[in-house]
């Protein structure tokens, strides 16, 4: 016990083996590349084997061919740009407003209690169903699509941010009171970071819905956008062309998803995630 006042010895950091971790990562990458090639190959083989009508479905080779043809005609970029703009603008507006309203509601508790049942009711209404109204009000241009995307992204962010901000760790609150933190400081240093994981859960849901909203709004009535292109290809019985658009939509969706998750990792850096180093 005589050594009790001596500082605790520092536990040596758990030794990692970078070589083996690296090898695991490369093995995983090789496996997913092989899986990708396998899926594409199987798709091609099945279409050829069963001699599927090109009116019903197209092989990857035909899709690629259609894509190259479209690219050479300069068909995609404008529509792609329009859809991406609708998604990004609508998402930014909807998510920001959802977050801000959640903050306002959590700061004024009574307002929150009064509003909550309505918000939940609206939340369970499929927002794409109001697309016809939005088109009716704002016309066939980009504005109506941005509004619908904003509407769709608003609610998941609002609801998740509200529930995140509603959870107040009493110990952290006591700590902030003991240090006589202002309301703003308590929000900035405790409540907002505590709610960040929930807010990002909302953003992840909203990101997926944003693209859906843009495409549905384009289906209902638009002049430009990938949704328009998809309908045109369908009218022309151009199945391969339709599949090109689907692949592009999948790529956009994936990019949005990966981006939001990357931002989440950066912002909520303290949250331990599955697969992280211990």
């Amino acid at each position: 016990m005589t050594d009790a006042a001596v500082p605790l010895a520092v536990a040596p950091a758990a030794r990692r083996r970078p070589a083996s971790r690296g090898r695991v990562r490369w093995t995983n990458r090789a496996l997913s590349a092989a899986l990708f090639v396998g899926v594409i190959g199987a798709w091609e083989a099945l279409v050829r084997l069963f001699d599927v009508s090109p009116l019903m479905f197209a092989a990857p080779s035909a899709v690629l061919e259609a894509f190259m043809r479209g690219v050479s005609r300069g068909l995609y970029w404008e529509h792609l740009g329009v859809t991406v703009f609708e998604v990004v603008a609508g998402f930014s507006i909807g998510a920001s407003l959802g977050f801000l309203l959640a903050v306002a509601v959590s700061e004024f508790e009574r307002a929150g209690r009064l509003l909550f049942p309505y918000l939940v009711a609206i939340q369970s209404l499929p927002k794409v169903a109001v697309a016809p109204f939005v088109i009716l009000w704002l016309g066939f241009g980009v504005e109506s699509k941005v509004l619908l995307v904003a509407l769709i992204t608003f609610f998941p962010v609002l609801i998740n941010a509200m529930s995140g901000l509603a959870i107040q760790d009493p110990q952290r609150m006591d700590l902030m009171r003991v240090f006589r933190a202002t309301r703003w400081q308590t929000f900035r240093y405790v409540r907002l970071p505590s709610a960040a994981p929930a807010i990002f859960a909302g953003l992840n849901v909203a990101a997926v819905l944003a693209l859906t909203g843009a495409i549905v709004a384009e289906f209902v009535g638009a002049q430009r956008g990938l949704g328009v292109l998809l309908l045109q290809a369908q009218t022309n019985l151009d199945t391969a062309g339709m599949l090109v658009i689907l692949v592009m939509l999948a790529a956009i969706g994936l990019t949005i998803n990966v981006t939001v998750r990357a931002v989440e990792r950066k912002v909520t850096y303290w949250v331990a995630r599955r697969g992280d180093a211990p």
């Binding site: 110990q171 952290r172 006591d174 700590l175 009171r177 003991v178 006589r180 405790v190 970071p193 303290w270």
Partner: peptide
């Protein structure tokens, strides 16, 4: 009547902010 700087408090859990 309210918390004050001359009175420090240590809680059962350390209550470190993880961020």
């Amino acid at each position: 009547v309210e918390p004050r700087g001359e009175i420090g408090v240590v809680f059962q859990d350390a209550v470190m902010l993880p961020w």
